[in-house]
Simulated assay, not measured.
Amino acid sequence: MTARDLAALPAGAPPARRFGPGRTLRLGLARIAYETRLYFRAGDTVFFTFLFPVVLLSIFSVAFGSLGEVGAGPDGTGGISQAAYYLPGMIAAGILLSGVQNLGVDIAMERGDGTLKRLAGTPLPVLSYFIGKLGQVFVTSLAQVALLLLLAQLAFGVDLPTDPASWFTFAWVYLVGIVTAAVLGIAISRLPRSGKSATAVIIPPLIVLQFISGVFLSFTMLPGWLQAIASVFPLKWIAQGMRAALLPESFAVAEPGGEWNLPLVAIVLGIWLVAGLVVCKVTFRWIRKDT
């Protein structure tokens, strides 16, 4: 915020309420650029949230490439490459990391090191702060998805869908998934008791969730009780929606119930989105009385 911005504030008005919607939006857009620069300057964050799915897709595609096509018939036809098979799961994992892990750890650390307290002493509106955080998630996540798709197509020869229906499914699953993941990231940022414990509290459960949600392993390979646990959480449904968008229709028989069940994907993600918004509203504190 510049000195000119501060000078334009009406005297005596509460800090968080001096800005109109236009200036709040402009400050939020400026925060997006600021948050994105900070994100890419943190090497560990870039590797474990942005590049991690890219690295895993490369490893799985090379390591399991000798196993042949996935889903091929007895005559050797009808299958897809290992890269094509793992691509939906890596995109789903990237959504989880970009939203839940990134924001969960980041906001917890900002609370622990006093950043939120210092921001509370400035006229920055709470809405501008969250526009910055959510915008950074969208920018970095979209870049990650583009990188995964380009890697799959150019390096491993994956044939991406050509029909508009598949890309429409991809678009709405991605949008609902990333918004839900971002909101849940803000919600779980209250779990760590300190900024130093944020990575230890948030990252291990997310790793376990990836293993039981059909990201690294075929979902139907898991015991029924693990499938039931994973089905409670949104990652399983994001991965299922991405498989519906990117895999051939014949692969639907490998899903529970033998179909993609996209309406249920939308319902479960919608429930998690609403629940996350409620938790954010109840638990997030800006440490400023007027907000």
Results as ranks from 00 to 15, higher is better:
A155P: 14
L56V: 08
V137Q: 08
F64G: 06
D5G: 05
G185M: 04
W167D: 01
D106V: 13
A33R: 14
F156D: 04
M109R: 14
F138V: 14
V268P: 05
I203H: 11
A187F: 04
A8F: 08
P161M: 09
I271M: 12
L269E: 07
S218F: 08
I59K: 02
Q82M: 13
G43C: 12
L150K: 06
T180S: 05
A182R: 08
L147V: 00
E35C: 12
P204K: 02
Q82L: 06
S231M: 05
F52Y: 08
D163M: 13
I178A: 12
T122G: 07
D106Y: 10
S166N: 06
V137L: 09
L154S: 13
R18W: 02
T140D: 10
I203M: 13
F251E: 01
S194D: 07
G20V: 06
Q153E: 15
P21S: 11
L247S: 09
A165M: 11
S66L: 13
A42M: 15
F233R: 03
M221W: 15
A16T: 14
L57A: 04
V215L: 00
L149E: 00
V105I: 12
D159A: 15
V176N: 14
L51N: 03
V137A: 10
I238C: 00
V279N: 00
A155K: 13
A93H: 07
G43Q: 13
V137S: 07
T122S: 11
G43P: 13
K196I: 09
A245H: 06
G121Q: 11
T45I: 15
P123R: 05
V278G: 00
T220I: 09
V145P: 04
R118Q: 13
T115F: 09
T199H: 14
S81W: 12
S98A: 10
V232E: 00
I95V: 08
A63M: 08
P263K: 02
D163K: 12
S98E: 05
V62K: 01
F64Q: 08
G157N: 11
Y129M: 11
L269F: 10
G12D: 10
P88C: 07
G104Q: 07
L160C: 07
P14W: 07
R193C: 08
A83D: 04
P234Q: 03
I95R: 01
Q153G: 12
A93Y: 05
L87E: 00
A13V: 15
L96P: 01
V265C: 03
L38Q: 15
P15C: 06
R41I: 10
P256N: 06
E35T: 13
L97I: 03
Y39P: 14
L150G: 09
M109H: 12
M109V: 14
K236G: 00
F50I: 09
A239W: 02
T2L: 09
E249K: 09
G157S: 09
G104N: 03
P256M: 05
G112E: 08
S194F: 03
